[in-house]
Each structure stands twice: as structure tokens, then as C-alpha cells.
Design a protein around this nucleic acid. Sequence first.
DNA 1: GTGCGCAAGATTGTGCACAATCCAGTGAGC
DNA 2: GCTCACTGGATTGTGCACAATCTTGCGCAC
Lengths: 241, 241
Amino acid sequence: MSQKNKQLVGIMNDRNRPQTDDADDAYQHLFDAIVDQRLLPGTKLTEMALVEAFGVGRRMIAAALQRLSWEKLVLFIPNRGAYVAAPDTEEALDVFAARVAIEAGTTEAVARAADPRVMASLRDNIAKEHKLRAQGHVREAIHLSGGFHVKMAQLSGNRVLAEQVRLLVARTSLIVNLFENQTGLAGWHDHHEDLIQHCEAGRVEKAVALMREHIMEIRDGLALDRRRPVSFDMIRVFATT
Amino acid sequence: MSQKNKQLVGIMNDRNRPQTDDADDAYQHLFDAIVDQRLLPGTKLTEMALVEAFGVGRRMIAAALQRLSWEKLVLFIPNRGAYVAAPDTEEALDVFAARVAIEAGTTEAVARAADPRVMASLRDNIAKEHKLRAQGHVREAIHLSGGFHVKMAQLSGNRVLAEQVRLLVARTSLIVNLFENQTGLAGWHDHHEDLIQHCEAGRVEKAVALMREHIMEIRDGLALDRRRPVSFDMIRVFATT
DNA sequence: GTGCGCAAGATTGTGCACAATCCAGTGAGC
DNA sequence: GCTCACTGGATTGTGCACAATCTTGCGCAC
């Protein structure tokens, strides 16, 4: 096994064992790895390495990569393989605009229903995030922060929108990694908590407006005019795109 | 070649020859066939039949079917094959709710820009639709009617939303086929023309509101509480879902 | 030292054959 | 007549091997 393969095996191993019985959870593992930023934009995803890492047939790996490619989470170049996607500025703007539209829909649904159990579930998510953030686990906190949006979409009851939010949050993770500003999140305030309060009180308009602002604030916290320099072997990859 | 295979070949042939050079336009052909209702919900899509129809390898066909399955346009049952999807009531409601949210976003973008060339392009689409409808080509008119929404999404400039509208319009085609009311579209009025006028005049709020109403009107024109009886061989297929 | 060409190795793409599973038709038993 | 088990055919799933393509490293000419 080559050195590069060992590396990929390690990345996949550190969460749960890749000794998978099910078929296409190779997809889920790769998806999670991208969302958690264990796989960074531009890294090459060699089929054979993933075969060794997951212990499933090459067909399954190829299918998972193709699906991720259709979902714009990996870039697929014929005869050259799959690479973790590196969205450009235009794509980033589209993603945020789409999130504004779609999550306005999920927020409206949640605020209208105002189910107490749903609210409790969301609060639970926030509490965990605060705890992790206080403990300095930044990556896990980011993961849960995205998870809040996904959970909200799921609780809206609309599976179509929930699936889209899931994908858009994942793409946002890539975007944040590539465009994040050096100056951290200075005036950061927890919109999620306010959002839930609006939903509980049935202030639908307020909740929707806050969600839109919240997403746009994430966008404006980035330096979208300047993508982070990509690591060396990506230059050739994404130059030819 | 079996009789069933000949049938599928025929369906695929009547538009453009399947002698395809490109790889995954098998996907596009199947997609169009579903949108145009040449392939009706529940019909089985046998791999070998499609291989003969398109003249591409089985791998490409399998990939196309898998993609359509992820897009919820076909139902994929392991070891049993792929069938054109037959959405149920819940899924139909989700699709319409998602369209309301997403197309509100595309409409807002188009209305804000109010680009004259964009408007002309949309009007061209409407004119063609009217012409076809006057000539009694109902299916082509329906196709263009859906195409209006897709075109509007593309012209909004947001590729993420445009892609979603493309898929949701396709699913709507299946839904309309399954739930359409016997009593036609009685009080049918052309919202598309009004929509463009609002956009041209820069009445963003009006345009968005009309789009939302328009989609909900399509939904309410259906009998969503009663799905059309599916043809015989589907009973077994979708009963086990 | 730099650029070019070539060859060896590595990686992806694809057809083929066989295994696993499902489906339809038949016939025995009640 | 009806139900159930069985068998032959058809369809899908998968590993394997080879072809096509790309990458990398080396050597040579300038």
C-alpha cells in the first residue's frame, strides 16, 4: 500500500471503522469527511485508496464519487479522477442566495407549526454547540452549527427542502474553508437562539427575516473576493477546469 | 429482441436517434422522456432494453438510472430494477411547497434585474406555448409551460436554484400525470404573462406573490387526495415500497 | 540549466463472464 | 378450484482482466 493510500485510510479511520457492511455508506463517510473538513478542497480521491479504506468494491466507490460529483461536492475530471471541490466566488454567491431562498421556506414552516418538541430538539442542538465551543472544539462546533440548519430543515417536514439544505450546508463548509477571513468572527452573536424564540412566539415574519439576515451575515463574514491559495498539487488540477 | 425491448426502443427513437456519441446523455433522454410523459409512472426500465435503445454500455445505463433514482424521478429497488417514480400525496405536497420557496427566489432575482433581453426571451417562450396550445398540441404546450419556469430560473442567474427548478418541474410532471383532475383546467388564466409584466415594471413583491399563487393554483387544480389507479403491473411494484 | 521527448508506472474506463436474485409458469397435493 | 412448492428463464449485481489515458521520472539535445 502506498503512502498516499495509508493517509486516506487514516482520515477515514479516525471517526468510525470503515469495516462497512452496507453498500453506499462510503458515500456518507466521504460526505461527512468533507463537511467536517477532514478532507480539504483539492485533495485527490483515488479510487483504489478508498477501496482499501472502506473494504468495498471499486464499483461502489465509483458510484459514491459520481454522486458527490453530481452534488458538486467533488470535481470529477474524466480519466483523471475525483477531487474535493473548490467552489469559486460565483458558485459561493449562488449557494448563499439559494440558502436564503430555501431556508426562508423551512423557517416559515417551522415558525408556523411552532411545535414545542421541535423547539426543544433545536435548543438541545444549540446547547451542545455552546458546550463544544466553550471547550475549544471549534471544528465540532462548526459541524453542529451547520447541523442546526439541517435539523431545522428536517423538522420543517419538507423532505425536498431538507435534502437541499443538507447539500447546501455541505457546500458552505467548503466555501468557508476557502474564503474564510483572517479576522475571525469578531462581532459574533448567536442568531440561532433568537431564531428559536421568534419561532416559539409565532413571529413568522420576524423569524424568516432573521434567518435571511443570518445567512447573509455568514456570507459577509467571508472574503469572497479572494480565495485562499490552494495547496500545490491543486494548482494544476483547477487551472485546467 | 423481445417485444418489450422493441417498445422501449420505439419510445426513445421517436424524438432523436439514440445513436449517441456522448456518454451520459442517456440520462438526458430518459429525463426528457419522463418530463414529456412518454414514460409514464410505474413503467419498468430494464437495463438491457435501454442498452439496445441507446447503444451504450450497461455501465452508462446503470449510472443514468442511479442518478435519476437520486433525483427521485425513478424508483430503484435492489435486485429488481428501476421504475419510473410514482410520487405519493405527501411527496407531491413537499414538491409544491419547495417550488413555492425556490421559485420565489428565482422570481425575485429576475424581477430585480428586469433585463429587457431576459423578458423578451421569456415572452418568446410564452408565444410558442400559446401557438402550440392553439394547435391542439397539449403535450408540447405542457412541456413549454414547465419550460417557462425552468427558463426563468436559468435567467435568474443562480445555477443552484435553476438546477433545483429543473428537477422539481420534472417531478411535477409525474405528479400532474398521477393526480390530474378529470375536470380539466376550467378557470385557467395565463399567469405567466402577468408575471412578466410585474417583473418588467419592477414590482418585485407583486411578482413574487403571483408566482407563489401560480404554483399553489397548479397544486389546487389537482386531486391530491386521490392518486390515479396505476396500470396493472405497477400494483405489485409500488405495493412493496 | 532548461526544455523536450520518451518510456515505465499508476490510475481510470469498459467489456465479459459468472454469481445471486427475482419472476413466471407448471404441476402436485388437498 | 385453490394453494403451495419447484424449476427454467430472465434480470440484476459484482469481480476480474485488459484497454485507454494520464502522470512521473529519466535522459538527451541545446
